[in-house]
Amino acid sequence: MADFAKPKGKGRFTSLAFTSLTWLLAGIFFFPIFWMFISGFKSELDANGAPKLFFEPTLEQYRIVTETPPGQLGFWEATTNSFIIVIVSTLIVMMLAVPTAYALTIRPVGKWMEYLFFFISTKFLPIVASILPIYILAKHFDLLSSRRLLIILYMSMNLPLAIWMLRSFFQEVPRELIEAAEIDGANLRSQMVSVILPIVAPGLAATALLCFIFAWNEYFLAVQLNTTGGETVPIWASSVVDERGQFLAKLSAASTLATLPVIVAGWVAQKRMIRGLAMGAIK
């Protein structure tokens, strides 16, 4: 609890002022999203004029943006691509990160900190610096015309982050529990399945979610490597503007559709997500 503004006598007024300020700021921060959301229900006439809060809502724009114009990337195709790419890459990340986090915490390798630093340091490599070799390699291995390339790239993009977060969660597993399981005769698999994973389950979920968010929102690699047959939602969202000009209502409808999965997921898991990022890293 913050130490200022406890509701006590004179403090009650301050408290009320702080609460109002919080709500005001919350409103300001949320406003662009709110605006985007309501504009999606406007007619283009209402949207492309002086800002209007009251209007006759229509689902017309949603109908239009989810239709696939011939020869262009459709919403459903992009969404399918995004879900497949993001889910598969996140699954692979988790499958690799769980044993790695185990080897960094519970039965740590020698020099575990150096391994951890290596993983994190790769996040400092600007992706743009390796886009060209990636393109050349992808072409060489014939990966450009599939979803596989983005799966691989998002996996390598999220792996260090996932390892970092999972390490925090694994660290919170009490040593004695694993020792007790060893004494109880549990082998490694059984220790993992019966003891460790149930404890870190919320952390696994939060980590997977963060990977999901970053992969879902990724645009640069998706657009540059322009994988035919693997175009994702961000490409679709930006193409709505690029190809259809200043149609703000349609843009808003498309933006809402593009961001909705991640926003909902983020709302559900906000508390855990941050615990994973901040706890364990710091005591």
Partner: peptide, 30 residues
């Protein structure tokens, strides 16, 4: 696992997600 011993820990080290019966039966299950 191979020593056939049982240990009681200072902070008990009970498996939090298992019931009392589950905790007590875990070693036998293994």
């Amino acid at each position: 696992q191979q020593r056939d011993i049982a240990m009681v820990f200072q902070n008990y080290a009970l498996y939090p997600q298992m019931t009392v019966a589950g905790n007590m039966g875990f070693a036998l299950k293994q």
